[in-house]
Structures are given as C-alpha cells and as structure tokens.
Amino acid sequence: MHIPEGMLPGAVCIAGYALTSAAMWYSLKQINKKEDPHKEIPKAALLTAAFFISTFILIPIPPASVHPMLIGIIGAMLGYFAFPAITIALFFQAVLFQHGGITTLGVNAFLFGTSALLSYYVYLYAARIFQSKKYQQVIAGFLAGISGVAVTVFLFYLVLILFLPTTLDVETEKKAIMLLSLSHFPIMILEGVFSASLFGYLSKMKPQLIEVIK
C-alpha cells in the first residue's frame, strides 16, 4: 500500500514532505519532553524493524496472501515514537526494496504515520473504557488494529484518486474512494484479529512491551 515513484505530481510530493516535517517536529517535541528520551529508542527501533519485516509474514487468503500492516499495533505500542518509527521503516523499504519511493516518502509517511497516531488515541481511549476488564488489551488491540488499516486505506485512496494525473469527475472520484476503501473491510477485520491475538499474548507474556510510551 505504498505510493510509488513518479505517480504523484512534484507539488504534492513537496506538500507531503512539509506535512511530514510538521508531524515529525511535533512528535519529537513530545518525545523530548520525557525525562530520558533515549531510553525508549531500542523499543521504537525494534518495532520499526518489525514494521519493515512484516511484509515477509504472508498469511494465506486463497487465492492470494496478505501481510499484517502493523500500523495500529505500532501506534498503540509506541505513542509519539510511532511517527518517526514509521517514517524510518518506509525509508528503508524505499531504499532497500523500492517499495514506495523517495519522492513519495513524505506523502506515504504522513498517511501511515497519521494513521498510527490516531490508532494510538483509539487504543488509549479503548483501554480506558475497558479498564479492569479481563479482555481490556484484546479489545483495545482489536480496535487499534482496525483503525490503523481503516484510516490508512481511506487516506491512501483519497490521495491517489485526487492527485493522480487523470481527469475524473467529482462523483466518480467520490464513488471510487468509497468503493475502494470499503473493499478493504475484510482486511481491516483480519488486522484487528491479528492485533487482538498479539496484544492478548503480549499482555500475558511481556506486559511491559504493550505499556504505551506516553
């Protein structure tokens, strides 16, 4: 789900970098408010690598296969570290495998990073609502996973359809964005199940890994 090189006009690529810089500045500002910002770097870097590696975990959905996006999971586990983490992972994917691109890195990072930050808030809110419930982490993880995919997919098609150098009429554009976003509904549910299973497992085995970095 990366926008590749050459697909978007230069002005949109520059605007993407401007938005990503602003979001990155805000995230780093929040991170630097912490007593020891360096302490969480290993965990953030680990999840950055996990986001990168996630493309290699192929879950069969005959006749094709999908890989977990991990956007909601990264948002829920890293908080404000999620934005730099996702930007770095996308940079490595563009550089090492040509997934996405350098000119479109700003746009891709903003789409994925914003979704991760929104998932972080969804996770915090859900965890607060289901506080002291047995399945608190499972439900919060499920919702974070779903919201991560939902927001990313919607923003992805919005950008793609609005800024592709084609001349589609407004009604067709609206329909295309809605239809393409809704077609990912099963993927959202699968990602939610994956996140819920992962959070359920981690809450039992290593709860400090899902203690969100506030």
Binding site: K43, A50, I57, P60, P68, F194, S197, Y201
Partner: peptide
C-alpha cells in the same frame, strides 16, 4: 493454509518481539 492461522502468526510475531526486545 487459511485465515484460521492468523492467531498462530500473531503468536509468532509476539514471540519474535519478546525475544528481540
């Protein structure tokens, strides 16, 4: 072979994260 293996893949990812963490 099917989507029923999603929880198993989640456990694999969880074990991987714990080990690396």
């Amino acid at each position: 072979k099917s989507i029923l293996s999603i929880p198993t893949f989640a456990l694999l990812s969880g074990s991987l994260l714990i080990r690396s963490y």
